[in-house]
Structures are given as C-alpha cells and as structure tokens.
C-alpha cells in the first residue's frame, strides 16, 4: 500500500466515523461536527490520491476542488450553527424536534 492510499484510507475512516456520529448522536452540535469530520475525510481522499503522479508535482486539480469544498463547508457550518442557536432559542432543546409531535 502506497503512502497516498494509506492517507486516502484514513480519509475514509474519518468519513465513516463522522457518519456514525451523525446517525447516533442526538445533540445538534455533535451532528454539525460530525458532518465537518466527514467533509475532512472526503477532502483527504481527494488530496491524498492526487499524489499518485509518477514523478513530478501532484495533480493540482483536486487541490483546487478541496479549496472550493472547504469554503462550502465553512459556509454550511456557519449557517448550521446560527440555525442551531435559533432552534435552541425557540424550543429550548439542542436537538431535532420530533416530526410527529406537531
């Protein structure tokens, strides 16, 4: 296994761990963090595998994609955090309301 693939598999690990937390944790802050960890995992897969170029610099295209992805992740996280604060303000609970209770 090359170093590039080792890093990429680590990225998959982060993705899986994040997905686990997203599903089983109820606290919304944990869910938002979980999505960020999943995102980091995907970014790691993208950049690590760019290092497979035979000799010469790594492929710059995935690097550019990851920069784009990071900005998107920052934007989404900011929106999620403010939404979380509003949910807490209106319901007093940092968790998703039960959809059937309405």
């Amino acid at each position: 296994m090359s170093v590039a693939v080792l890093y990429a598999v680590t990225g998959l690990g982060l993705f899986s761990l994040g997905l686990y937390a997203l599903i089983v944790r109820a606290h919304l802050l944990r869910k938002i963090l979980a999505l960020n960890i999943m995102g980091s995992g995907v970014f790691l897969v993208l950049t690590a595998l760019a290092r497979r170029a035979p000799d010469g610099p790594p492929d710059p295209v995935p690097h550019a994609m990851v920069i784009t992805g990071i900005v998107v992740a920052v934007a989404a996280t900011a929106l999620a955090l403010v939404l979380l604060r509003r949910v807490v303000e209106t319901t007093g609970q940092p968790r998703l309301p039960d959809p059937d209770s309405e």
Partner: peptide
C-alpha cells in the same frame, strides 16, 4: 449502525486499494 459502517469502510478501502497506483490525473 457501527457494524454497517465498518462494512462500508472495508468495502470502500478495498475499492481504493484497487485503484491504479500511479496516475497523473490532469496534471
């Protein structure tokens, strides 16, 4: 959930190991 995700992780890791070890992409 943990069991399912371990399965997913293993399957995807196996897929990554099967990728060509050398690739220049769009470089």
């Amino acid at each position: 959930v943990a069991l399912l995700l371990v399965g997913m992780f293993a399957a995807l890791a196996w897929v990554l190991l099967g990728l060509p070890p050398r690739s220049a992409g769009l470089q």
